[in-house]
Computed example of a mutant assay.
Amino acid sequence: MANLAPYISSIRLIVVMFPFLAILLLLPFLIRQYHRYGAISGWMVSVNYAFVFYILCAYALTILPLPTIEQVKQMTGPVENFHLFNFVRDFTTYSGFVLSQPDTWLHAAKTPQFTQPFFNLLLTLPFGMFLRYQYKKSFLTSLVLSFGLTLSFELIQRSALFGLYPRPYRLFDVDDLFLNTCGAMLGWLISGPLGKMLPKKEDIVETLEERSHKVSVSRKSVAILLDLAIIMVSDIAYNLIVGQPNQYVIILFYIFWVIIPELIGWPTLGQRLIHLQLVDKSGKKAGFVCVLLRNLFGYVLVYGLFAGELYVLNQTGSVVASELGTYYFLSLFGLFLILVFVLSLAVSLFTKQFFHEILSGTRLASTYQNKSEE
């Protein structure tokens, strides 16, 4: 177990980091699910997360723990092995294994000559299973992808971690290429019978397509967040290019990316990516007044509410004592309005409508087409 300590430490590091990465990946995962299927499957999202977690662990195990530069400078061993099946010769020579003597088998299985090749085989076993079960890759495609994955492991090691170290601190080994690739293909084979015990992707997709015409609160939220992200990225890009931030530019981007498309009757980019379009209560194109009311209640007032609350809080540190009472009252009133806004979001989980949709008489309708309908 002492030899496994560095690897356990590497996995522990990924476990600590992964929740933060999961939050960053949540919106892209949701966008992909809604764009492809029109609805979300918790199982499919979980499997995709598991795949990302596995990839991170695999690279961590092949790169970490990182030695110091001084330790690497003192290394004098070989940096590469191009002799295939060298692990077989090492096992038969140094493990003490004798086929005709069963009492040597257990001892041989505990030696590094066995455990290192064995763990190299296990390292990529999940990769092949994911390729077949989740991503429906053929044997030949999986073989190419598996070889590419393990080759990336070895090239990173051979490059001395992209030149950060004076020399490689791990061995570039063709035996590892062979064992990792074999491990992945073994996982591909195992995934066949194992996949029969897990939910079938075809059945999940069929269920998702049945739900695709129902627009959930989370689906609307993803469209809104995506539009806001596009506006913010556009504003940041403008500021970087021009070099002179302008607070009114973000308003112009909002008008360009959201209000103008909705007035014309086009979906915004966020709505288009997840197959939604703005309509009125009857399902027809939303009118001019409805679009303006929707954006007034949904974005302008909410943004102004939070901006106003921040302004009042900032002013409390600089105004004279006689005016503090007024600012405290305004601050509490703003917090009350924010609480009302948060409660309205909670109510929307049950009503399936946001307050600005109710007040403006608009809704987001699904434009997703099932594959059988396309």
Rank of each mutant, 00 (worst) to 15 (best):
G308Y: 12
P267Q: 10
F114P: 07
L143H: 02
K281Q: 14
E154R: 02
L143P: 02
K136N: 12
H213Y: 13
K284M: 08
S100R: 13
T111Y: 06
R89T: 15
F354G: 03
S146P: 05
S372P: 01
F139M: 08
L155W: 09
F18V: 10
V233Q: 00
E309K: 12
P245A: 07
S138G: 15
E373K: 14
N48G: 09
L335K: 11
S344Q: 12
H83K: 14
L208I: 09
L273F: 14
F297R: 06
R132N: 01
F82P: 05
F51H: 11
Q315K: 14
V215Y: 02
Y303T: 13
P117N: 09
S46T: 14
T268Q: 03
Y248R: 06
R167Y: 04
D103E: 15
V320H: 12
L64Q: 10
H213D: 12
I260S: 01
L310K: 15
A2Q: 14
T268F: 08
L305G: 01
K200Y: 09
A307L: 11
C182N: 09
Q116M: 13
I55T: 09
V319G: 05
N314T: 13
S318R: 15
N81W: 03
F114Q: 03
G361F: 05
F139Q: 02
K352A: 03
F53H: 08
P112I: 13
F20P: 07
R167A: 10
G308F: 11
M1N: 09
P6V: 12
V258G: 01
R294G: 04
C182P: 00
V79Y: 05
L252F: 12
R219H: 08
F139V: 10
I11A: 01
K285F: 07
A286K: 00
P78C: 06
A160P: 06
P261C: 07
E309I: 15
L177F: 05
Y303E: 11
E206N: 13
I231T: 03
L27K: 07
K285L: 04
Y311E: 07
I241S: 05
L13K: 15
I31V: 12
I14T: 11
N239V: 14
P78M: 09
G195E: 00
G243H: 09
F354N: 03
A160T: 10
L292I: 14
F87C: 05
R12D: 03
G42N: 00
I190H: 06
F178M: 12
S318E: 13
Q353R: 15
T316W: 02
G325K: 12
T141E: 08
I255S: 04
F253W: 15
S360P: 01
H35C: 08
F147Y: 13
A365P: 06
R363I: 02
V289P: 02
L252C: 09
I190G: 01
A109Y: 14
T93P: 00
I190A: 09
S159P: 07
A346D: 12
G128Y: 11
V222M: 00
H107E: 13
E209S: 00
D103L: 06
L25E: 06
S282T: 11
R272S: 04
F119T: 08
L99S: 05
P67C: 08
A286V: 05
F20W: 10
L106H: 09
L123F: 07
Q315T: 07
T326G: 05
S322F: 10
V52F: 06
S372C: 09
F118T: 05
Y368G: 02
